[in-house]
Simulated scan of single mutants.
Amino acid sequence: MPYPSTYPPPPNGPGYCPRCLEVVIWATTVNRRALAVDPERDPKGNQAVRQDATGRWLVRQLTRERPVPEHDEHLHMPHVATCKVPAPPKPRRPAAPRHRRGVRPNPRWGR
C-alpha cells in the first residue's frame, strides 16, 4: 500500500498569477509541479497543454523527440515569459569568512 503524499496537490485549472493577478491556467508537469500558462493559444508557445478525461490540465515541454503538439494538445506560452511584474530578486547570503579551525598534524614533523 503506497504511503500518502506529504505534499499538497499542485493547483490545477484556471486561476490567477500571484504576482500580476492576471488569469492563467495552472497545469501539472510530468514531475507533478505546477506551471502557469497563458490561457490564450499561441503558435509561438513552447508548452503543449491538454486536459485529460478527469479534467486535469497537463503540460509538457516541446522537445527534439516530440517537437509538435499531439492530437489533443495546444500550444501555449508559459506565463513566466509574459508576466509584467518581474520576479523579486533572490536575497544574497553574506559571504562567511573562512576561518581556520585547526591544523592537521604533518607526520614528518614528529621525526
Score class of each variant (00 low, 15 high):
residue 2 P to T: 08
residue 3 Y to E: 13
residue 3 Y to Q: 15
residue 5 S to T: 11
residue 6 T to C: 07
residue 7 Y to E: 15
residue 8 P to S: 09
residue 10 P to R: 00
residue 11 P to Y: 02
residue 11 P to Q: 06
residue 13 G to W: 00
residue 14 P to W: 02
residue 14 P to M: 04
residue 17 C to H: 02
residue 17 C to N: 03
residue 17 C to A: 05
residue 20 C to R: 02
residue 23 V to Q: 15
residue 23 V to R: 14
residue 25 I to W: 00
residue 29 T to D: 04
residue 29 T to Q: 00
residue 34 A to T: 02
residue 35 L to K: 08
residue 36 A to H: 03
residue 36 A to C: 07
residue 38 D to Y: 08
residue 39 P to Q: 04
residue 42 D to R: 07
residue 44 K to Q: 15
residue 44 K to P: 01
residue 46 N to M: 09
residue 49 V to M: 08
residue 51 Q to I: 15
residue 52 D to M: 00
residue 53 A to T: 08
residue 54 T to V: 10
residue 54 T to R: 14
residue 55 G to P: 03
residue 56 R to F: 11
residue 56 R to Q: 13
residue 56 R to W: 04
residue 56 R to V: 06
residue 58 L to K: 08
residue 61 Q to K: 11
residue 61 Q to H: 13
residue 62 L to Y: 06
residue 62 L to K: 00
residue 67 P to I: 06
residue 73 E to I: 04
residue 74 H to V: 11
residue 74 H to D: 07
residue 75 L to D: 01
residue 76 H to L: 04
residue 76 H to W: 04
residue 77 M to N: 01
residue 78 P to R: 11
residue 79 H to R: 05
residue 80 V to R: 12
residue 80 V to H: 10
residue 81 A to P: 03
residue 81 A to S: 14
residue 82 T to D: 00
residue 83 C to M: 07
residue 84 K to T: 14
residue 87 A to G: 02
residue 87 A to K: 14
residue 88 P to Q: 02
residue 88 P to K: 05
residue 89 P to Y: 01
residue 91 P to K: 07
residue 93 R to C: 08
residue 94 P to G: 06
residue 94 P to V: 08
residue 96 A to E: 15
residue 96 A to R: 15
residue 101 R to K: 13
residue 102 G to D: 09
residue 104 R to N: 13
residue 105 P to A: 13
residue 107 P to S: 12
residue 108 R to K: 12
residue 109 W to Q: 12
